[in-house]
Amino acid sequence: MATEPEIYAALKEIFADVFMRDDLELTPALTAKDVKGWDSFKQIEIIMASEERWGIKFNTRELDSLQSVGDLVKVIAAKTA
């Protein structure tokens, strides 16, 4: 199972690829509003890259519930538990 720190570390790599910048600090409260260029397409990229990374599949309800990076980490942690 993936621990939260491991998930944050891996997500940081995914975010670095999606936004091509290494300086994003991922905090639980971070949302799309806080990051330039984080639109619905980037959101799907992050989701799909996470699905690839952990070999998981988000269902529609889970995707609807995502508001922040913290939410995303919780769902990933639950699915990899």
């Binding site: 999606v18 091509m20 990229e45």
Partner: peptide, 12 residues
């Protein structure tokens, strides 16, 4: 390259 890196290369 996967789709994420493809997009990044395209932007650049």
């Amino acid at each position: 390259i996967n789709f994420v890196l493809t997009n990044a290369l395209d932007e650049a």
